[in-house]
Structure formats: C-alpha cells, structure tokens
Design a protein around this nucleic acid. Sequence first.
DNA 1: ATGTCGATTTGCT
DNA 2: GCAAATCGACATA
Length: 204
Amino acid sequence: MAEQAKRLPLSFYRRDDVIRVAQDLVGQVLVSDIQGKRVSGRIVETEAYRGWGDRACHAHAGKMTPRNQVMFRAGGIAYVYLCYGVHHLFNVVTNQAGSADAVLIRAVEPLEGVSFMAQRRGLDQCSKQLANGPGKLTQAMGIEVKHNGVSLTGDEIWISKSEITLKPTDLISSPRMGVDYAGEDAKLPWRFRLRGSRYTSPKE
DNA sequence: ATGTCGATTTGCT
DNA sequence: GCAAATCGACATA
C-alpha cells in the first residue's frame, strides 16, 4: 500500500554514518499509532550518539547494559529509555548489528492528531509546546519504555519520507544538550535543528 | 547495601 | 533561577 511505500527503508537506518542519518532525519515525519490514536509530526531536531569514540553515548566503548542492549542490534528499531526516572526518551537505532549508534529525536512539529497530543500533554490544542523537547515528544506521541526495541517498519511507530528536500543550509548544527559529563565530547556539534522552525526545543 | 547522578520538565520563588 | 520528581546504572563497601 502507499502507506508502506512512504516509509523509510531499513537501508536508510543501517548506513554506517550516524551523523549523516541524524541530519537526514530532520524534516522526515515521525508517526505513531498507539492506543488507537494516530499522530504524526515533522522532525525538527535530532542528536547523534555514537558507540565508539563518544563518551556521551550510553553504550560508549562497547559497554552493554540491560538498558542499552538494543543499541547494539541492527538499525531500524527504537531505543526508548527512562531519563531522570521520569521521562521516556525516543531514539532511532542505526548502523549494523554490533555497533551501538543511535539518533535521539528531540522535537517534532505536530501535524496529524494534534488534539490527541494536546490531550496526552494536558495542554491547549494551540500550544506550540506539544512536542518541543525529547520528553514532551514521547508523551505527546504515546511512546513509552515498553516500545523499546520495536521495529520502525512495524505498525506502532514508523517514519515516513518527507515530500520536502532540505538544503544543507536549512540545518543548524550545535553541541548536544545536557551532556557536560562527557568532557571534550560534549562539544561535538552533533545536534541538528531545522533552521527557522518554531517547534525546536526552548534552549539555545 | 547504600549513595550519586543522569541525553528533562515543571512549578514555585 | 532553582529544586523536585524518581528509577536504572554505576561506583564504592
């Protein structure tokens, strides 16, 4: 069906350059169909995390734990974990099995199902703050830790190819948020935002 | 077994 | 501007 044809294929996720995948994900459309509520949003902010040579990554230097083990699987699945014991954060696992690269989806511009998102967030439908942060996004889209490891070619969470093609100048790259503990690696410019979007996360 | 800290958000001062 | 919420991972014992 046409629905399937628009989904990003596994070959998109399994490329070996997670930085490139993080850049290419900006502008694509994240869709969830959970608890009978279908919602979608255009990805406007991402961050890349690399298993090798990136101390900000949960799985840096090949360290596997019960929490992060799905990062080591082949790309095209979700890595969802609990942050600060409160927020669910959604990542896209990339690269081949054995590597531990992933892209954190930090913000989306709401498209379909805005009223469902507002309902889940407990906010007014007109709010620009429905999904402008990694924890807010998962709450708005109904994504929880139980979705850890689900396929992005399945029927709960997937990403549709955008009808829009971005130019390199449409992307802003900057250091990642909240990773000061990573020392020098905290300075890596692996956060990517859609230039001019009003739906990216609040902080510079 | 116990203590610290985190890829954040929210509400109160 | 600051602290609380609150669970898993990790270091230390």
